[in-house]
Design a protein around this nucleic acid. Structure first.
Lengths: 151, 151
DNA sequence: CCAACCTTGGTGATGTGTCAACTATTTCGG
DNA sequence: CCGAAATAGTTGACACATCACCAAGGTTGG
């Protein structure tokens, strides 16, 4: 028998969905307007700058972004066309490929990051108490663990 | 000067993004597999069943879903093609239109809701403490208020 | 060695979201 | 009343996500 959500649960669930919807829309718009990047572009570029030689194997990138490989492949194709990243072949493994940060890509992320972080801070961290942030982290980890456990 | 996120903030932020990504992907997949509906379809149908005569003006639906009108228009078009909803003209206002629930649409939502709620409960509410749920609701309201204030 | 199999990565079709431009109708100031 | 502005909704172009499938290179057991 299905147990429906009670009043408080419904409040929490609807609030969460609503917040995420509006928040991500806002962040996307701001990023797009300030730097011409989408959130997805931003994530890709962040992962590349974090890498030792600013290049990462496609499958590793997919894993750390938690993206499907085909999504990443399409996305990298579009970013490549815009000059933000470049594909490089892998000598060790003929099937493999690297995604590498270009100069333009580095410039883009360096320009995009400060206003983006400012916005996140203003909308989220300056708005919440330290305790709320703490609980958000715990709660996320917990749901993530549950998701992983159900694989 | 940009203040970067400190360690705890970064943990919370990354965790939240990761959780939302995986959670929504999972919910979408489950709903799709069980009932052939997407989360977006589901939301539309829920709002229609909540309405007095199971039909709502397009702009009101857009407002309560917090969707852009063009998104809704496209989506309704696709749902109409699948027989889940029907468009009806509005006599009071020649520009206006209603979106109405069809019999097939009602059947779809009634079949989809129980397994969906079960999944949400299992992944989220059974996993979290009552206090965490409480904080999630508060925190969502707070960020939403901040977003609204910045209009 | 080599045939079956697995892994890496890409492709095309289709559904979905966003933006800007558009049509049709209503509303309202003068 | 008339014409400008506001409102309701649609459309087309394009970015994006997902699915099913494919191609080519690697791996391994017989």
């Amino acid at each position: 028998m299905t147990r429906w959500l009670d009043h408080d649960e419904q409040h929490a669930w609807r609030g969460y969905l609503r917040m995420h919807g509006k928040l991500s829309a806002r962040l996307n718009r701001q990023l797009q307007a300030d730097s011409g990047l989408s959130l997805a572009d931003f994530d890709v570029l962040v992962h590349l700058t974090d890498a030792p030689e600013a290049r990462v194997r496609v499958s590793e990138l997919a894993r750390s972004l938690q993206w499907e490989k085909s999504r990443l492949s399409h996305h990298v194709g579009r970013m490549e066309k815009r000059g933000l990243v470049a594909r490089e072949e892998c000598l060790d493994d003929g099937r493999g490929a690297f995604v590498a940060l270009t100069t333009a890509g580095r410039a883009a992320i360096e320009g995009a990051a400060p206003p983006h972080v400012d916005t996140v801070r203003r909308l989220v961290f300056d708005t919440l108490t330290a305790e709320q942030v703490q609980v958000l982290a715990e709660l996320s980890d917990r749901v993530l663990a549950r998701l992983d456990a159900e694989e």
